Computed example of a mutant assay.
Amino acid sequence: MTDCSDIATQLKARLADLLERTEVIEDDLRHPLDADWEEQAVDLADDEALEGVDDVLRSEIQQIRLALLRIENGTYGTCAICGEPISLERLKARPIATRCIKCA
């Protein structure tokens, strides 16, 4: 893929957004537990849900960083399975894609 500047810009913006969101989640997870047992149960359930969201966000962050690395080293847009080019339409729809439609 020759010019990926628009996709790289999109990926960098998404990365910044995700990093900000994970920071907010981490701050929420660091709060001390309430003295009330019932409140602690609610807080722990909320924390468990937040941890799940944080895991999903961190996975996407990793995928975006890898996509940016592929852009940097010139392998972006090449299917990791068959080595054929990934269509621009697919990359626009899913910029972190590593496989073409046939191999996906």
Rank of each mutant, 00 (worst) to 15 (best):
R21Q: 12
I64D: 03
E60D: 11
T22L: 00
R21N: 01
A49V: 14
A41G: 11
L69I: 00
K102W: 07
E72R: 13
T78V: 13
I61D: 01
H31C: 04
C4R: 02
C82K: 03
R14C: 03
A45T: 09
D36C: 07
Y76S: 01
D47H: 12
G52N: 13
E72H: 10
C82L: 05
D36H: 10
T98Y: 00
E48S: 14
T2E: 08
A104I: 09
T75A: 06
C4K: 02
G77I: 04
Q40M: 08
S5L: 08
E23V: 00
L91E: 05
K102M: 08
L15C: 02
Q62Y: 09
C82G: 10
E84Y: 02
V56F: 11
L57R: 14
V24P: 01
I86W: 03
W37Y: 13
D28K: 14
P85K: 10
C79D: 04
L57A: 11
E89I: 05
A41V: 12
N73L: 00
T75R: 08
D55M: 14
H31P: 00
L68M: 07
G74W: 01
E26R: 14
L44H: 07
D55V: 14
Q63H: 15
I71M: 08
E84M: 07
E23T: 10
A80E: 14
R70G: 02
A8E: 15
L29Q: 03
S59H: 09
T22I: 06
V53W: 07
